[in-house]
């Protein structure tokens, strides 16, 4: 089974790397979906089937579709690829890449410096346990999450409304 883990990990990493370097937004989004699906497989391997399912349904499904919609609404066409080309010069990405590499090296150093736990067993946690936990111990957090979603709904509705913006731009501040 370890082989499957490393394979999916490799897919996730490569797909993610493709996301951040790709010029075409829709292609990049498809790579992101691939990456998310790989992560879902990894969830499944770690004994978290509900998480894997949610990852596929909500992340790879709903959220990514939302982004696709927005890309389609912006409808920038092929010129964006050229634009991304000019924006992604080596001097633009070299610095951030170095910084991230440094951060990664530090994280790996920290993780590997800790004691390797001898107990490599994992526990299967099913949807039932999660459901019980959510609606007993975490019920207040669930309520808060629902409030957050409601606020997000209202906010998104308000922000996405197309108001007529007068040429002076003096009013209609959000």
């Amino acid at each position: 089974m370890n082989f499957v883990f490393y394979l999916t990990s490799a897919i996730a990493v490569v797909a993610t790397a493709m996301v951040i370097f790709h010029k075409n937004a829709v292609h990049a989004l498809l790579y992101l979906v691939t990456s998310l699906l790989a992560v879902a497989v990894i969830f499944y391997q770690f004994g978290a089937p509900l998480a894997a399912a949610l990852e596929v349904i909500i992340y790879a499904g709903a959220i990514m579709v939302l982004i696709v919609f927005v890309i389609m609404m912006l409808n920038q066409g092929d010129s964006t690829v050229v634009q991304e080309q000019t924006w992604l010069q080596p001097r633009t990405w070299l610095g951030p890449a170095l910084l991230s590499a440094l951060l990664l090296a530090q994280l790996i150093l920290l993780v590997s410096s800790g004691k390797i736990s001898s107990n490599q067993t994992f526990h299967y946690i099913g949807p039932k346990q999660i459901g019980i936990a959510l609606f007993s111990h975490y019920v207040l957090a669930v309520e808060l999450a629902s409030m957050l979603l409601l606020a997000g709904l209202v906010g998104a509705f308000h922000l996405a409304r197309r108001k007529k913006i007068d040429s002076e731009g003096s009013s209609n501040a959000y």
Partner: peptide
């Protein structure tokens, strides 16, 4: 990023 690198 620089801040977190320094912290780490």
């Amino acid at each position: 990023a620089v801040g977190s690198i320094l912290f780490l």
